[in-house]
Write a protein that binds this DNA or RNA. Structure first.
Lengths: 203, 203
DNA sequence: ATAGATACATACCGTCGGTACGTCAACCGT
DNA sequence: ACGGTTGACGTACCGACGGTATGTATCTAT
């Protein structure tokens, strides 16, 4: 019976080690950042939660802000996914409205909000924050608006300022909604107002 | 010749001292916060710039975030004043539009932006930030919108979500405009889009 | 005049982000 | 099979920072 050269299961390959460690660090860092805010979480706290040491952290990341950036990318990706899944096969207008609702719902959750909307601009600087956003939510928004202009659904106009106005409106609305004592009703009011604003763009 | 008991002019009363020291601290802190961001300014830096020591700072403020709060109050007050002065005697609709323009212009300036729009939510927490905002710009916005509803200029609707949407839209627009290579044109585009959105609220 | 309050300055502490360096297992060419 | 190399950490340590404890000179109320 030939001994198959399978790597012993008690040990791990280097790639596995790397992936496991980074995954643990990012996951625990995300939990802590969301709960206490970037400034009030220490690296010691993070590495202890992840079961490693600072040496490991600095082997994979260039510093505290780099860990935050990795966390933020995860969060952004999650939100973008939820927006894309909101109404995947509907017409562009419905997609836009459904996407806005999905964004508001996701961004209202505390685990997402503090990281993505409160700490991110301060930690990364606004430009880097926008660059990251431009690769996800903002891109989806601009694409939807461009599509609507091409289809003649809304009147031709500069897309970029419109996208920024809408994006900012939803960011702030999400922050407000998260602290609302009557969140469901306020969400509906917000969506109604937002839809009314969007209607003004139609021909 | 009776010696008039006038306090010698070379010395200062305690009230004068207090006012001078806090003024110097807040002014220099504001300059540094605006230039480098809250996290990258040390207390040592601030007190050296103001020509005092940390003992003086901690006599007047409870900590670094308290200094920031004092700075932010100044900035907010300044912006509110500029909004109020935008079109003081015009009709409510014109006042609203002019106020929005004034806000965008003020919030685009680097000395105001980083403090008020980027660092403030992260340092104070969003709730405290909003509380401060609610006392100034937000109050003006809500008042203007309420007036317009009362006058029947715009259709009756929940004011608060609308105010948050508009406030957030302008915050984000200001951040974007500040980095625009074509700021004047983009400002006009933004105002045009914003006005179009506001028009949708009319009956 | 004097007792207390006020407005600081000085010296110091614990913690934090970051770095230098050592160690040991996984990899890879021979 | 094996010896050198690389990668993935752990350990020990540093300077800087926010914050505190305490001393002291000056003003003010009585």
């Amino acid at each position: 019976m030939p001994t198959t050269p399978q790597p012993t299961r008690t040990t791990r390959t280097k790639a596995q080690q790397r992936e496991e460690t980074t995954r643990a660090l990012v996951e625990h860092a995300r939990r802590l950042f969301a709960a206490k805010g970037y400034a009030h979480v220490s690296l010691t706290e993070i590495v202890q939660a992840a079961g490693v040491t600072k040496g490991a952290l600095y082997h994979h990341f260039s510093g505290k802000d780099d860990v935050f950036r990795a966390v933020l990318e995860h969060v952004h990706g999650e939100v973008a996914e939820r927006i894309a899944d909101a109404a995947p096969d509907a017409d562009p207008w419905t997609q836009l409205v459904a996407g806005c609702r999905a964004f508001l719902t996701a961004s209202t959750e505390p685990g997402i909000q503090r990281i993505m909307l409160i700490d991110a601009p301060s930690v990364l600087g606004w430009s880097d924050w926008r660059d990251l956003d431009a690769a996800t939510s903002m891109q989806q928004l601009e694409a939807a608006l461009t599509q609507l202009v091409d289809d003649g659904v809304i009147v031709d106009q500069p897309i970029t300022p419109l996208a920024h106005l809408l994006s900012g409106a939803m960011n702030e609305a999400a922050l407000w909604l998260a602290r609302s004592p009557n969140r469901d009703r306020d969400l509906e009011d917000t969506m109604a107002t937002l839809t009314r604003l969007l209607q003004s763009l139609r021909g």
